[in-house]
Every structure is written in structure tokens, then in C-alpha cells.
Simulated scan of single mutants.
Amino acid sequence: MKQIKRLFMITILATVLTACGNTSTTAEEVSISLTITDQTTNTTISEDDFTVQAGTSLQTVLEENYDVEVTDDGFLTAIEGHQQNTDENIFWTYEANGEMVNEGIADYQVEDEDHITFDLQVIE
């Protein structure tokens, strides 16, 4: 009986030590889709799907995949040469999953199955 208890304890101890020794972490990946349009010229600039690490900022996704311009204080001003024009009230806006987002692209962290739409449009 002592041998069975000893074998049982050794098995549990080995399992616990193996679990504690596995320090590798695998970052969760999320799938997102991104649509970019210029409403002032009725042009679709891009429609792409991406797989990125969970917690990635939207700004990082844009900067890694497109030619973008962002001000020092985090405002998106251009994507692929399509520039906002403050004198004509033309600005970039974006929605996530059909809802307007009220945070900057540096603060928005993408989530699995996000559908994000950027529109360059006249704001009245």
C-alpha cells in the first residue's frame, strides 16, 4: 500500500513540476477585417482581412499594413495618400462592428471578429 501511495505522490509531483516548468506563452491570435473608403471620391481604398495578436492596437495594424500618417497626438490624417482636409471639413472616421468609436486608434485594441471601417468624409 505504501508503494502505491508513493507512486501516486511521485506522479502528482511530476505533473505539477512539468506544468510549472512550461513557461512558454502563446499569444492568442484574432481575426479582423478592415475596409477603408474615401466617401469624397466614392472610392474603396482597401478591403482586407488580417490575423494579429490579441491586444494589438488599431494604429499598429494600420502602420504595419498601409501607408498612414498620424499626428503626434494620435490623430489619423492620411491613409494611402488619401488626406483629410480640415479647411473643407473632410476627416477620417471609423467604426467597429457598425458602431462609431470614440477613442483614438492608438487606444483601440482589436478583438476577434472585429469588422472595422474607415471612411474619409465631409463632417458637417
Score class of each variant (00 low, 15 high):
50 F>L: 09
58 L>F: 15
74 G>K: 03
120 L>C: 03
52 V>R: 10
117 T>S: 01
104 G>R: 05
83 Q>S: 09
48 D>M: 12
44 T>R: 14
79 I>D: 04
67 D>Q: 07
9 M>G: 02
73 D>K: 05
3 Q>W: 09
61 V>N: 08
85 N>E: 13
34 L>V: 10
76 L>D: 03
89 N>Q: 12
5 K>Q: 10
98 G>E: 10
38 D>T: 11
30 V>I: 12
78 A>C: 04
36 I>N: 08
71 T>I: 05
33 S>P: 06
75 F>S: 06
20 C>I: 13
66 Y>A: 03
25 T>W: 00
119 D>L: 01
44 T>Q: 15
45 I>Y: 09
6 R>W: 04
83 Q>G: 00
34 L>F: 05
27 A>E: 11
40 T>S: 12
12 I>V: 15
80 E>G: 04
23 T>F: 12
22 N>C: 14
110 V>L: 10
85 N>V: 08
101 V>F: 04
61 V>H: 08
12 I>R: 01
99 E>L: 11
10 I>K: 02
107 D>N: 07
57 S>V: 06
47 E>Y: 08
88 E>K: 14
93 T>I: 14
62 L>E: 05
14 A>L: 15
13 L>A: 15
14 A>G: 13
70 V>T: 05
35 T>G: 05
59 Q>R: 14
22 N>E: 07
120 L>W: 03
79 I>L: 07
114 D>N: 09
92 W>T: 13
96 A>N: 09
3 Q>R: 12
58 L>M: 11
71 T>A: 06
110 V>W: 01
52 V>T: 11
54 A>F: 00
55 G>W: 06
39 Q>R: 14
27 A>H: 08
63 E>G: 00
79 I>P: 04
100 M>I: 13
97 N>M: 08
12 I>G: 05
106 A>H: 08
73 D>M: 06
68 V>Y: 03
90 I>S: 10
87 D>G: 06
94 Y>Q: 06
16 V>I: 14
117 T>V: 09
61 V>Q: 07
19 A>T: 12
29 E>M: 15
15 T>F: 12
30 V>W: 01
78 A>N: 02
22 N>V: 13
109 Q>K: 15
82 H>D: 04
40 T>G: 09
88 E>H: 07
100 M>A: 14
124 E>F: 09
64 E>M: 06
31 S>A: 13
101 V>Q: 11
71 T>Q: 04
44 T>Y: 09
50 F>K: 12
66 Y>N: 05
78 A>L: 03
104 G>S: 07
117 T>R: 01
59 Q>D: 04
107 D>C: 00
4 I>P: 00
96 A>S: 13
58 L>W: 03
10 I>C: 10
32 I>Y: 07
22 N>T: 11
84 Q>R: 10
94 Y>L: 09
96 A>Q: 03
45 I>P: 12
104 G>W: 00
47 E>A: 13
25 T>I: 07
121 Q>N: 01
66 Y>C: 03
74 G>C: 01
